[in-house]
Design a protein around this nucleic acid. Structure first.
Length: 717
DNA sequence: CATACAGACATAAAC
DNA sequence: TGTCTGTATG
């Protein structure tokens, strides 16, 4: 067996991880240390050397992009297709399980998935039905609440109201929301995970079957897992499964989205025989950049601890530019970019990073003025565009008539004389009889309670859908999609307006037809092509500007930069209040996450990084006078040089001042402590105060533990 | 029923 | 400040 291909390109630590014995393995992989490579080679090793069958693998990532890249690299290494491998996102794999076992999961066969926008509409409708004021009950907040509970694995019955009336109302809304979802046979993203978890938890035979099958559970970006995702892993692993997780606590930047770095800390405790491998050699950045990154992140306390190093050169110093205002900042950045391009470099080798999306505007305007092509990450994606969602709503209704959110969306799009009064009557009827809008509409027509004209319009809509269903059922998917966009009147509707925008919408609808052509059938879940396409549209809605192949400068938030790398990086808006963001600045955990974000930003750069801040910044129409970010101060002077435009009056170089200490908790994160029984360790986390204060300690001789401060008798060192 | 206008809203975002 | 959403209006 030729294993050189798998082993040769690896360094010692990577090799140790890839060839690790079949027991729980935790790979702590620093930025640019070859994390994906390790996962890919591990899978190849398991198959080629250890004789593991592909169907015994269960490999999870967070994005479709990461899953696709993993697939592609495995195929390149193994030389055969991985179509039937269980490699995908948590949501994608959960969905696959639910499609196979929809009956056991108590779902309708044709259940549909709602995206966050659909979910918000659903919440709004619920509030309207209950006649609750949207100003008092913020739909977004309710949506957030519901998702947060689901992310923690909590059904309404199990959420504690803390004796708080407002909270009780939220819980009630959550319960009603669940009921509405069930009546419409729709599930939201969090529901996919929770339902799949419950499916396995409540069906011991199924669980046994899958435990037997999936022996090797591989998880990418483990620091980003939330409570249910970790529960999933633990449940599926049982005592026989072999988890192999890769993560970096220093790159955990999604706490606000439910991610728990703690999962990384408690992994060893849950899987006692865990082998830990640290990947600390970096292949991406110059040593100057790495030193700065290491230095910054060392100001964080709750860390497992890692130190990146490189065999590479020290490279250029980090450049710091103090701009007068945000326009000056953009001018400076774009001038540097112009120089870089004029030296013969590709535009796509440059990234401009910022903390919040609002900052992109000035850069866009300046790039536009300089006629430099650019690409902004984020924004509306193809399957999220209004006209596409309209078309999908028709298709969803064909697949599942009870899909209320879709019904609401298109009953009167394009307009067909079904107004607010008619819909009020339909909703009222649906609520009273506890059925879907579709059924309610049918019975309202039958009972003849509406004015003739309204009744006729409603009937026309119902029969349009029935007709579309029967007439297109036997067609190939893309023909069905084409026919639906035409017969629904959507094409005519957008084509009619004669505007450029309308033309683009028609083109998008045509694009949807081609997208339908490319759908690949999942053999195991055996979905009809339409259902396959619809779930693909929600779960894999793709990039915002997928069609942009022109060589262009990359503009994105720090969050979307994670996982990417560029020879030249600009880290902009380094002002206290902007980065770190105002809303995280007063909270120790929030601030540490901001610092990790800064660490992520720095480690994106391969050769050169510029840090910029503005002394004055106009944001949302208001002028702000910021102080330079504290993160700048945390970089040693000798790694940085201040640059100023040739013409400007010289000013004193920005001086470091004492960092401000802010910490309410009795024991500081990062504090070294000694315990009578467990020995020495480092405080990773803390919660509560006074008699209830607890701290999480990472002990040197194995494992992390939560201890009640009042009893633990910890000795501070 | 399309258009105009007022008002809300702006941390980050994958599925 | 600019954009998006919902509603008032002709």
């Amino acid at each position: 067996m030729d294993v050189t291909e798998i082993i040769d390109p690896l360094n010692e630590a990577q090799r140790e991880a890839v060839t690790a014995p079949h027991r729980p393995t935790l790979v702590l992989a620093g930025a640019g240390s070859g994390k994906t490579r390790v996962l890919v080679h591990r899978i190849a090793w398991l198959i080629r050397v250890d004789g593991v069958a592909p169907q015994q693998l269960f490999a999870v990532t967070f994005t479709n992009k990461a899953a696709a890249e993993m697939r592609q690299r495995i195929e390149a290494l193994l030389g055969f297709p991985t179509r039937h491998f269980w490699i995908g996102t948590f949501h994608g794999l959960a969905h696959r399980l639910l499609r196979i076992h929809w009956r056991e999961a108590r779902l309708a066969e044709g259940f549909q998935i709602m995206d966050s926008a659909d979910q918000l509409r659903m919440v709004r409708r619920l509030l309207r039905d209950l006649q609750l004021d949207e100003n008092e009950w913020d739909p977004k907040e309710i949506q957030w609440f519901i998702n947060a509970q689901k992310d923690e694995g909590l059904r309404p019955e199990r959420v504690d109201d803390d004796g708080n009336a407002g909270r009780r109302q939220m819980i009630d809304l959550y319960a009603r929301y669940e009921k509405a979802c069930a009546e419409s046979s729709v599930v939201d993203f969090a529901e996919l995970l929770l339902r799949a978890l419950e499916l396995l938890r409540e069906n011991s035979e199924l669980l046994a079957q899958y435990r037997e099958r999936f022996r090797h559970l591989l998880v990418d970006e483990f620091q980003d897992t939330n409570a249910i995702q970790y529960d999933w892993l633990k449940l599926l692993a049982g005592s026989t499964g072999i988890p192999f997780v890769v993560g970096d606590d220093d790159q955990s930047i999604y706490r606000w989205r439910g991610a728990r770095v703690e999962n990384l800390f408690s992994f060893q405790k849950h899987f006692p025989a865990t082998e830990v491998v640290r990947l600390e050699q970096n292949y991406r950045s110059t040593s100057t950049i790495l030193k700065a990154a290491n230095e910054i992140i060392s100001h964080n306390s709750s860390r497992l601890g890692k130190n990146l190093w490189t065999e590479g050169e020290s490279g250029e110093l980090i450049k710091l530019y103090a701009a007068f205002n945000e326009r000056d900042e953009a001018d400076f950045v774009i001038n540097r970019i112009t120089d870089f391009i004029n030296q013969g470099n590709a535009r796509s080798d440059v990234a401009v990073l910022y903390r919040s999306n609002a900052q992109s505007r000035v850069f866009e305007e300046t790039l536009l003025a300089a006629a430099i092509p650019y690409r902004v990450y984020g924004g509306l994606r193809f399957f999220e565009r209004a006209e596409i969602k309209d078309a999908l709503a028709y298709l969803r209704l064909i697949a599942n008539r009870d899909d209320d959110p879709s019904f609401e969306r298109v009953v009167n799009t394009p307009t067909r004389g079904i107004g607010a009064r008619t819909m009020d009557a339909v909703r009222e009827c649906a609520r009273e009889t506890g059925t879907s809008l579709w059924r309610a509409a049918g019975s309202i027509i039958a009972n003849d309670v509406l004015p003739k004209r309204s009744s006729k319009a409603l009937w026309a809509f119902l029969s349009l859908l029935d007709r579309l269903d029967t007439e297109t059922r036997e067609m190939p998917l893309h023909d069905q999609v084409r026919e639906v966009t035409r017969a629904s009147g959507l094409i005519a509707h957008h084509g009619r307006d004669g505007q450029l925008a309308g033309e683009a919408k028609v083109e998008n609808l045509e694009e949807l037809v081609s997208a339908a052509q490319g759908v690949i059938q999942d053999e195991e879940s055996d979905l009809p092509p339409l259902a396959e396409f619809l779930s693909y549209a929600v779960l894999e809605s793709g990039d915002a500007q997928a069609d942009d192949y022109e060589d262009s400068v990359q503009l994105m938030t720090l969050h979307s930069a994670k996982g990417l790398e560029f020879p030249l990086v600009f880290l902009s808006g380094l002002e206290d209040g902007l980065f770190p963001h105002q809303r995280s600045i007063t909270d120790a955990k929030g601030l540490e996450e901001e610092r990790r974000l800064c660490y992520v930003g720095l480690t994106r750069a391969q050769q050169q990084i510029y840090l910029t801040y503005a002394e004055q910044r106009r944001l949302y129409g208001k002028d702000n006078y910021g102080t330079p970010s504290r993160f700048i101060r945390e970089i040693p002077d000798e790694l940085m040089e201040e640059v100023r435009p040739a013409m400007s009056v010289s000013r004193p170089v920005y001086r470091r001042s004492r960092p401000v200490q802010m910490e309410a908790s009795p024991v500081k994160l990062g504090q070294r402590v000694r315990h009578g029984k467990f020995g020495d360790g480092v405080v990773l986390n803390s919660e509560g105060s006074g008699a209830h204060a607890r701290v999480q300690v990472n002990f040197e001789n194995g494992g992390t533990k939560w201890l009640v401060l009042a009893y633990a008798n910890l000795e501070l060192m």
